[in-house]
Amino acid sequence: MKIIVFVKQVPDSAASVAVEDGKVTWGDAPLVINPWDEYAVEAALALTEAHGGDVVAISMGSEDAKEALKHSLAMGCAEAILINDPAFAGADSAAAARILAAAAQKVGDADLVIFGKQAIDSDTGVSAAMTARVLGWPAITLVAAIDALDADAKTIQAQRAMEEGRQVVSSKLPAVLSIVKDYGEPRYPSFMGIRKASKAEIPMWSAADLGITAPEAVVSWPEIMSPPAREIANEIIEGGSPEEIAATLADKIMAEKVL
C-alpha cells in the first residue's frame, strides 16, 4: 500500500499570536507540525504496519515547513516532499487543494491520501474534502476509527465522528481520509527516527515539477486584526460557607438572564 499524508507547519498552539503592521507575528514561539496532522501520520503508519507499504509525507510551504516533514520522518514516514514555489504563496483553500491533488497524482498509485482535521492557523478544515473532489475520489472525513481495510479488494471501513455520534461507512479505494483525535494518540518520534530525519534530503517540488501553473485564488483576506479587547468585570465571590457562596453566585447568574 502506498499512503500519502499531508502535513502543515504552524505556530505552536501556545504561541501568543498578534498583528503588527498588518502582519501576523508569533514572537519566538516555535513552528511545529499541525497537531491534528500527527493523528493523520499515526493512522498512516499504523495502516502500513498492518498491511505493508510506505508512507510519503508532503507539505506545502516555505523551507521552514521542512521541520514538520522531519517530524513525520522521525515518526516513521519513509519519504518526505516539500512543495515550494513563490507562485503558490497566495493560494486559497481551493487553489491549495488543486496543488495538493497534483502532488498526489505525481507521487502516483496512492491507495489513501490522509489529512489532519484542520490547520490550527487558518482553522478552515476543508482541505481533505476539496482535494478529494479535485482527485475525483471518495472522501471519508473526520475518521475516528478504521474498522477494516482490504488491500487486495481495495476497500475500507471506517467510523466518522459526526454531531450525532459515529457514522460507519465503507468505501472503495483510493480514497481521501481526514483523521480526528479519537483515532488514538500519535506515537513519539523514536531516537533512530530522529537521527534518520536529521540526515534526510527533502526534495522540493515547484509548479513546473508538478506540471501545473499556480491555480488562481478567489478568496482574499483584505484585513487581519486583533479581536476587540473584551471588557470583563471580574468579580470574586467570597465569604461564608459554600452554601452562602453558592447562593450569592446563583443570584448573580440568575440576574444575568442567561438561563
Partner: peptide, 26 residues
Amino acid sequence: FKLARYGVVGDLYDIVPALTVALKER
C-alpha cells in the same frame, strides 16, 4: 479567573453541589 465574570476560589466538591441546590431552587 481573568476571563471569568464570576469566580469562586474554592473546592469544586463543595461549591458545585451547593450551586446545584441553589439554582434548582431559583
